[in-house]
Amino acid sequence: MSKPTANLYIDGFNLYRRLLQHHPQDKWLDLEALGEYVLPDYEVNRIRYFTAIIKPLPAADPQSPQRQQAYLRALGTLPRTSVHLGKFRIDPRIMPVHPTELDSEGKPVTAKVKKTEEKGSDVALASYLLLDAFNNEADVYVVCTNDSDLVMPMRMVSEDLHRSTGLLSPMEPKRSSNELKQTNPIIHRQITLEALAACQFPDVILDGKGKIHRPVKWRLNSEGPDHSEPSNQ
């Protein structure tokens, strides 16, 4: 008997922040291997990965963008995986200092800061999730995130389109979003460090342009977390 089918939608920024940021040796992640590892009872039809191209930041590692580009090239070798890019923005903002301080007039003291944001990825994920479910592409639609902003599209897939949903949490179940769990997915599983370690690309991959090397900072003997910003840097 053939397995039921699954589509997998990965919130790259959330996966990075919740799990990969402090484990650089696991960032060379083969998403198709991961899908098969965490969903062994399903045939994974397709994987959609949502991220944004990062920009160099002051005082951050200047090699982060190059590592991300190497990773995106590696993902391009996977036949069932597509990458969907939002935008990475750096905007000046006036914001209150923390902890709150008041000036002589009783107003909050503010400071000018650079605010970094990934824009568009959540909307893109929700849109493709709904589109694919509407087209009845799979038996279950599995979202990898801990971002409660995706509660509404998951509910719409389940309640309005009458399709089954799944949730992959990039953190332990007791810390995963209650709002997401309350969408009643038929699958709720955790992505563990063991799963990440078991699903790495080879150190060298070939594509149409030549060899893609695993970044040195992402090797097992690298030292410390990668202090950088959104997605898989």
Rank of each mutant, 00 (worst) to 15 (best):
P4F: 05
P4S: 04
N7M: 13
N7F: 06
N7L: 07
Y9D: 04
Y9A: 02
I10R: 05
D11S: 01
G12C: 07
G12K: 04
L15K: 01
R18T: 10
Q21N: 11
H22C: 04
H22Q: 04
H23S: 06
D26S: 10
D26M: 11
K27L: 10
W28P: 03
W28G: 11
D30A: 08
L31E: 03
A33V: 03
G35A: 14
V38P: 09
L39M: 10
D41I: 01
E43F: 12
V44P: 05
V44A: 08
N45L: 11
R46K: 10
F50G: 03
I54M: 12
P56T: 10
L57G: 08
P58K: 13
D61I: 10
D61S: 13
Q66D: 14
Q69A: 11
A70H: 01
R73E: 06
A74F: 01
G76L: 03
P79R: 05
F88L: 07
P92K: 15
R93Y: 14
I94W: 08
M95E: 15
P96W: 07
H98T: 12
T100A: 15
T100L: 15
L102D: 11
T110P: 00
V113F: 13
K114Q: 14
K115V: 06
T116A: 15
T116E: 14
T116I: 10
E117W: 03
E118K: 06
K119P: 10
G120Y: 06
S121M: 09
L130C: 05
D139S: 09
D139N: 13
V140D: 03
V143S: 07
V143K: 04
C144H: 05
C144L: 15
D147R: 07
R155T: 03
M156S: 06
V157F: 07
D160M: 06
D160Y: 02
L161A: 08
S164I: 01
T165P: 02
T165S: 09
L167T: 01
P170Q: 11
E172K: 15
P173L: 13
P173V: 05
R175M: 12
R175W: 11
S176D: 05
S177R: 06
E179V: 07
E179L: 15
K181F: 14
Q182D: 13
T183M: 11
N184G: 03
I186H: 05
H188P: 01
L193Y: 00
A197L: 00
A198F: 00
P202I: 00
V204G: 02
D207A: 00
G210F: 05
K211M: 08
K211T: 10
K211P: 02
I212Q: 03
R214D: 04
P215A: 04
K217A: 15
L220P: 12
S222R: 07
D226P: 01
H227C: 05
S228K: 04
E229N: 09
Q233V: 14
